[in-house]
Simulated assay, not measured.
Amino acid sequence: MKLLVYSAKDFEVPFLKKANAERHRVTYIKEALDSRTAIKAMGYKAISIFSGDDASLVVLEKLRDLGVKYILLRSAGYNNVHIKAAKRYGLRVANAPDYSPHAIAEHAVALLMALNRKIVLADRQVHAYNFMLDNLMGTNLHGKTVGIVGTGNIGSVMVKIMHGFGCKVLGCDLQPDHTLVEAFGLEYTDLDELCSQSHVISLHVPLTYENYDLINASRLERMRRDVLLINTSRGSIVHTKALLEALENKEIGAYGADVYEREKGIFFRDNSKTGITDKQLKKLLSFPNVLMTPHQAFVTTEAMRNIAISTFDNMAAWEAGTVCKNELGYETIITG
């Protein structure tokens, strides 16, 4: 089967080539999928896209007309795909779930620790030969209350890590995991209570209609003024305007994120020479108590290997006419 890989990044191509093992004819291009680049899929039965690609209704219609049958996501999240339209157009879609929950959870911990112990500031000062400690006060995590919003594959790993730190862990999820309660002392509560009680809040939920702007002005107001809020899920889980106001008014302690609600056209590219025009992002990055990384939580060798393997396993299942375990259903989600 011929496969076109959109948004192919130099660091992931070797993993994809190894997983393919020359079984399929694969073309790698750096361009992201959108209404303009969809034409490049002419002659391909399958395409592979990343979380920043646009698989909205208009784009899917073009892909169908070009003869594309399969869409392989190199990510767990699929809020950029109009699943209902894909079904209507006869396009089959599969993602790469569970590629490495540890990679995401560990990155969330890295953001948390760097913010709490002022690691970035300390490094900057030391490189300027300033070895003073006045601005570097942190707190012990041991004994603190940590709220985990979403206790699925990634959130459950975060629960275990925070339990290891000696934290009291609160959880919020529509489907409680009672094994976490029994093994790690997790206490489930509602989101508002979690927001008001937690010293640290870490977000690990998918982007659905229900979760869009889940952390809004009302919930930010409930949080402790010294709370550390960590987001490695999706940018739109947090209402950016409300977050900026909370930071400006010193209503929360700090914000660490690997995601941003309007990543498209900014993330996954070097804007150092041209700059950016997104005023909200510029303002967010201006706060000294904001630490942001460029959607890199998944960039570990283990995660990249697993994503590549899942991608070609999904493709092989469709080609063989067998069940593709990662084929997506058609539940209502945020569309592209």
Results as ranks from 00 to 15, higher is better:
Ile215Gln: 07
Glu221Asn: 15
Tyr209Glu: 14
Leu214Trp: 12
Leu228His: 13
Arg222Cys: 12
Glu245Lys: 12
Ala217Ser: 13
Val238Ser: 02
Leu214Cys: 06
Ala246Lys: 04
Leu243Pro: 11
Leu214Gln: 10
Leu247Thr: 07
Lys250Val: 12
Arg262Asn: 15
Glu245Phe: 03
Ile237Lys: 00
Lys241Ala: 09
Ala246Arg: 04
Ala242Cys: 03
Leu214His: 10
Lys250His: 15
Asn231Trp: 05
Ile237Trp: 03
Ser236Val: 02
Tyr212Asn: 10
Leu220Trp: 00
Glu263Gln: 11
Ile215Asn: 04
Leu214Gly: 05
Glu245Arg: 12
Thr232Ala: 05
Arg219Ile: 03
Tyr209Leu: 12
Thr208Lys: 12
Val259Met: 08
Thr232Ser: 06
Ala246Tyr: 00
Ala254Asn: 02
Gly256Phe: 01
Thr232Tyr: 01
Thr240Val: 09
Arg219Tyr: 02
Ser236Tyr: 05
Leu247Ile: 08
Leu243Phe: 03
Ser236Arg: 14
Asp258Tyr: 05
Asp258Cys: 06
Leu244Lys: 01
Leu228Gln: 10
Asn231Glu: 09
Leu244Arg: 01
Asp258Phe: 08
Glu251Met: 13
Arg222Ile: 11
Ala242Lys: 09
Arg222Val: 08
Asp213Glu: 11
Leu244Pro: 00
Tyr255Asn: 10
Ser236Ile: 04
Asn211Gly: 01
Leu244Gly: 01
Asn249Pro: 00
Asp213Phe: 06
Asp213Thr: 06
Tyr212Cys: 04
Tyr260Phe: 15
Glu251Tyr: 06
Thr232Cys: 11
Ile215Glu: 05
Arg262Gln: 15
Tyr209Ala: 08
Met223Trp: 11
Glu210Cys: 02
Ile237His: 01
Glu261Phe: 14
Arg219Asn: 02
Leu229Ile: 02
His239Asn: 15
Glu245Ala: 05
Met223Gly: 05
Arg222Phe: 13
Glu210Ala: 11
Leu207Val: 09
Ala242Leu: 00
Ser233Tyr: 07
Arg262Ser: 13
Glu221Lys: 15
Ala217Glu: 15
Thr240Met: 07
Tyr212Leu: 11
Glu251His: 14
Val227Cys: 09
Asn231Lys: 00
Thr240Pro: 00
Val238His: 07
Glu261Gly: 00
Asn249Met: 12
Tyr255Asp: 07
Leu243Asp: 02
Leu229Met: 04
Glu261Asp: 15
Asn216Tyr: 09
Leu228Gly: 01
Ser218Pro: 10
Leu243Met: 02
Asp213Ile: 00
Asn211Leu: 03
Lys264Val: 14
Ser233Gly: 14
Glu263Ser: 08
Arg222Asp: 12
Arg224Ser: 13
Lys241Asp: 13
Ser233Ile: 10
Thr240Ala: 02
Asn216Glu: 09
Asn216Cys: 11
